[in-house]
Lab assay of single mutants.
Amino acid sequence: MQRVNMIMAESPGLITICLLGYLLSAECTVFLDHENANKILNRPKRYNSGKLEEFVQGNLERECMEEKCSFEEAREVFENTERTTEFWKQYVDGDQCESNPCLNGGSCKDDINSYECWCPFGFEGKNCELDVTCNIKNGRCEQFCKNSADNKVVCSCTEGYRLAENQKSCEPAVPFPCGRVSVSQTSKLTRAETVFPDVDYVNSTEAETILDNITQSTQSFNDFTRVVGGEDAKPGQFPWQVVLNGKVDAFCGGSIVNEKWIVTAAHCVETGVKITVVAGEHNIEETEHTEQKRNVIRIIPHHNYNAAINKYNHDIALLELDEPLVLNSYVTPICIADKEYTNIFLKFGSGYVSGWGRVFHKGRSALVLQYLRVPLVDRATCLRSTKFTIYNNMFCAGFHEGGRDSCQGDSGGPHVTEVEGTSFLTGIISWGEECAMKGKYGIYTKVSRYVNWIKEKTKLT
């Protein structure tokens, strides 16, 4: 034993070699072989497995989906700052455009905790909710729209109204504003409101030439003092309507412009014939205590009207009353817009006519005020429907199939267009061939041609 100890002390290297040989010859039971080890760690190889990531292109799944990435790591994937920024906006807080917040056709661009709407022409605001041009839906104005110097929408209202708090709607500024039905039992019968379409306001006024200088022999019209197929109006439903009495009662109609003036057809009036105007009328054979009678003290036909040349060209006249009318729910003026808007309103496509005229061709006159909704007829169809001249200051309205029309005794009465609950004068009943005849239409004086003249002559002093 002493000898062994001496050998170990003198030859430590020998001992180490012996131990190493023993270990190498022993069977290893701690580690699995290569094949079995792979069965336990069965993990798919990654895209760049075996390579240094710093030297390969980034992978979106590896960089940002398996674990949260930084902007720089995302930049490695896209290799483009702009594309990385677009991805980053949604990656950080989701897609803010998912709810489609942009209105009126706006395009949404996502941002971090926010979004941006790219608005089409005519709109602005956070969600493109603000109209900035009158060309689109009248700028959301209830009545009139004008573009300011910086191309912003400025709404306005006709006389007797003021802008509401929203700067879009119009509200009454006087007790009985024009064009409004205020009798409670008839307010439910107000005709369907007309909503502004998209309009090209630059070209809204037709490029028409008034044929002022045409000389033409007097034409022989049949029954051209021209509501057939209409309905009984309720008291106060058309408070701007008046009836004219002269040699015979209810020979023509008219509309209240203001307390002192009536507008009617020029062919209705004769110099030297006494005319009485009755406002607030409903049943011409009954006294309903809503009527107001006034005498006409002055007749002003349009300066281009000449019955000797043509009885229905420039067929418009103004009547001055001896005493002002007292405005109330049964006696209310009709609204008159400017030339541009009167023309736009007419193009809405349908209007209402009213009167006490004959209820059928050569038949009896109506006792109760009649009204009828009539569609506008395109000019080409209008011209083809008659052998008589249709001037540019006239328009056609009615039904091709016949059966409904204005008729004798309705002449001078109103053709009105309702705009968001307020009625505007767009025409004056003038003439036609018979009444409600198939293929024939009622012919009306186009008020847009005469609004400046009306307003100039009827100013209240």
Rank of each mutant, 00 (worst) to 15 (best):
C134S: 03
V199F: 13
H282D: 04
V257A: 03
S184I: 15
V202R: 10
V77S: 11
R226Y: 13
N310Y: 04
R449Y: 15
V377E: 02
R298S: 09
I300L: 10
A265K: 01
H400M: 12
A173L: 11
S406P: 13
K89W: 05
F144E: 00
Q143R: 00
S184F: 12
K68M: 12
K188G: 11
G442L: 07
S25N: 11
T426E: 00
Y161D: 01
S156D: 09
K455A: 06
I390H: 13
Y391G: 14
W453R: 00
P197E: 08
I390S: 11
S156Q: 09
L327Q: 03
A173F: 09
N38W: 06
K293N: 06
G105D: 04
P239R: 00
H361I: 12
T426P: 00
V377W: 03
Q216K: 05
K457R: 15
G402I: 13
F399I: 12
T461F: 10
V331E: 00
K311Y: 05
K362D: 13
V242W: 00
D200L: 11
K39C: 03
R449N: 15
Y312C: 04
G349R: 05
V273K: 14
E61S: 09
V30H: 14
L60E: 10
G412I: 15
W453M: 01
E61Y: 07
G427Y: 01
E286T: 08
G363I: 06
D111A: 08
E418L: 09
N147F: 11
L425Q: 02
L23D: 02
K457C: 09
F31R: 11
I443A: 05
E165T: 13
E320Y: 03
Y91C: 04
D198N: 15
I40D: 15
P324L: 03
P177M: 02
V154M: 13
D315G: 02
N203P: 09
I17M: 14
E259Q: 07
K137I: 05
F238S: 03
R384V: 07
V419C: 04
F55N: 15
K339N: 11
F224E: 06
S423H: 15
D410M: 15
D198W: 13
K274W: 04
N113M: 09
A380G: 12
Y115Q: 02
R191L: 14
L325N: 00
E98M: 09
A192L: 13
V263Q: 01
Q370R: 14
E79G: 15
S114W: 04
L130V: 15
C155G: 00
E418H: 08
L32G: 15
R162N: 11
T417N: 08
T458G: 03
A9F: 13
T271G: 10
W431L: 08
D33I: 07
N283H: 11
E456D: 13
I284M: 06
C18E: 02
I299C: 05
G50C: 04
S255L: 04
S430P: 03
G125D: 00
Q216W: 10
Q216A: 14
K109C: 02
V56R: 06
S365A: 13
N127D: 06
L163A: 03
R75K: 15
Q2H: 07
T389D: 08
I390G: 09
V227F: 14
E73V: 08
G398Q: 05
G94E: 12
I7C: 07
H282S: 10
I7V: 14
K39D: 13
Q216V: 13
G402M: 15
I336N: 01
V202Y: 12
S156A: 11
F221R: 12
K89M: 08
I112N: 10
S430D: 02
P375L: 07
T271H: 14
N100R: 09
S187F: 13
N313A: 13
L319M: 14
C134H: 03
C134A: 03
F87R: 15
C119I: 00
A366Y: 09
C128K: 01
R358N: 09
G272C: 05
V278Y: 05
D212L: 06
E67D: 10
N245W: 06
E98F: 10
G421P: 02
R43S: 14
G105L: 03
L19R: 02
P175T: 09
T332E: 03
T218N: 14
I256Q: 01
L346M: 06
C396T: 01
L369Y: 13
N393P: 02
L318V: 07
F388E: 11
F221W: 13
I299F: 07
E288C: 04
F78R: 15
L52Q: 15
F238W: 08
E340G: 10
P239V: 02
L52E: 15
K234Y: 14
G442F: 05
V228W: 11
T422Y: 04
L460M: 15
T186M: 14
P324D: 04
K362P: 07
H361S: 13
G398R: 05
S184P: 09
S217Y: 11
R373Y: 06
D410W: 14
K68W: 11
C170Y: 00
P197T: 12
S182H: 07
C435N: 04
V242S: 02
T276Y: 05
I7E: 11
G122A: 04
L327C: 03
C382M: 02
V359G: 13
R404L: 15
T276W: 07
E86N: 10
K45S: 05
E124W: 03
D95P: 08
T461R: 08
D232Q: 08
L327G: 02
A9C: 15
N393Q: 05
I336D: 00
K362W: 04
R75H: 14
G125I: 01
F55T: 15
S220G: 09
N151I: 07
L41V: 14
I454A: 01
R449S: 11
E35S: 11
Y47I: 13
R180D: 02
V451E: 03
W453P: 00
T381R: 11
R140V: 05
T389P: 15
G125W: 00
E433R: 07
N36A: 10
